[in-house]
Amino acid sequence: MKRIELEEFTNKLALDMGLEIIELAKLRNQHIAIEINRLNHTVFLFVDDTLSADKHNWLRRKANVAMLFEESSLNVKTDLEDGNMSLEDTFALEGKQYVAKGGSIPIFVHNAGMVGTITVSGLKDVEDHQIIIDALTGKYI
C-alpha cells in the first residue's frame, strides 16, 4: 500500500487508529513505537517501554520520507533499490533526516490531499509497514 486515503482525518480518528495498532502488536507480542501526525503536528505517540530512545529518530526519519515522496517509505525503499539509487546520492537527502525503510504511510483525505503520516518502528521494516495495514484494514481502510 502506497498511501491511506480517507474521507476525513481527525485527532480522534488518529487516536483510535493508534490504539488499534498497539492492540494488534500486544496480541502478537511485538514491541513497537508509533507516531501519527496530522497537519505536521504529532497527535499520537507511543513508544513501548522495551525500546531504545532512538526510536523517536527512526519515526521522524521514516515519516520525512513518506511526506516528501507522498508514498509509503517501503515503496520508496523498493523504488530506490529497483533503480539502484539512494536518498543521499540521488536526492541529496541527509541520512540524519531521512531513511528509506518501511514503516511510514502517508494519510490522504479525499479531495484534500496529504494531511499526515502514520509511522511504526521497532520491528523489521517490512513488518513495521504490515502491522499498520493489518490493524487498519476493514475498519479504516
Rank of each mutant, 00 (worst) to 15 (best):
K101H: 12
D54V: 08
N37W: 05
E7R: 13
M67V: 10
E127M: 08
L68S: 01
V47H: 00
I105V: 14
Q97E: 12
G95Q: 11
I34E: 00
T10S: 15
E23C: 11
F46A: 07
G95T: 05
I133L: 15
K124L: 13
L45N: 08
T137Y: 11
K139D: 02
G95L: 08
F9A: 01
A25Q: 02
G138S: 06
H41N: 15
H56F: 14
N84A: 12
G103R: 01
L123N: 13
R3F: 09
N75C: 00
K96G: 11
A25D: 04
L6F: 14
N75H: 11
D54Q: 12
L13C: 03
I34H: 02
I36S: 00
Q97A: 09
A14W: 05
I32S: 02
S121T: 09
F91V: 10
G103W: 01
N29V: 11
T119N: 06
T90V: 05
A100C: 09
Y140L: 09
F69E: 00
N75I: 10
I32A: 06
L27H: 12
D54K: 12
I36W: 00
L68E: 00
T90H: 11
D125G: 09
S86C: 04
A53M: 04
W58D: 07
Q130A: 13
D128Y: 07
H31R: 14
D16N: 13
E127I: 01
I4W: 04
F69L: 00
D125L: 10
I141S: 06
A100W: 04
V115F: 07
Q30E: 15
Y140S: 08
V76L: 05
R61Q: 13
L19K: 15
I131S: 03
L136K: 01
L15K: 14
V65R: 02
L93F: 11
D79A: 08
Y140H: 13
T90A: 10
F69Y: 02
K96H: 10
L68G: 06
V99T: 13
D134M: 05
I21H: 04
A25N: 06
H31P: 01
A14K: 05
G95N: 13
G102S: 07
G103V: 04
L6D: 02
D48R: 01
R60Y: 04
A92R: 10
M67S: 11
V99I: 15
A135G: 08
A100E: 03
E81Y: 06
D134Q: 13
L27E: 15
T78G: 00
L123D: 08
K62G: 08
F46E: 07
L80H: 09
T137Q: 13
N75Y: 06
G113K: 11
K101N: 13
N111G: 10
L19T: 13
N57C: 01
R3G: 03
D16I: 11
Y140D: 04
E81N: 06
D16Q: 14
K2C: 02
L68F: 03
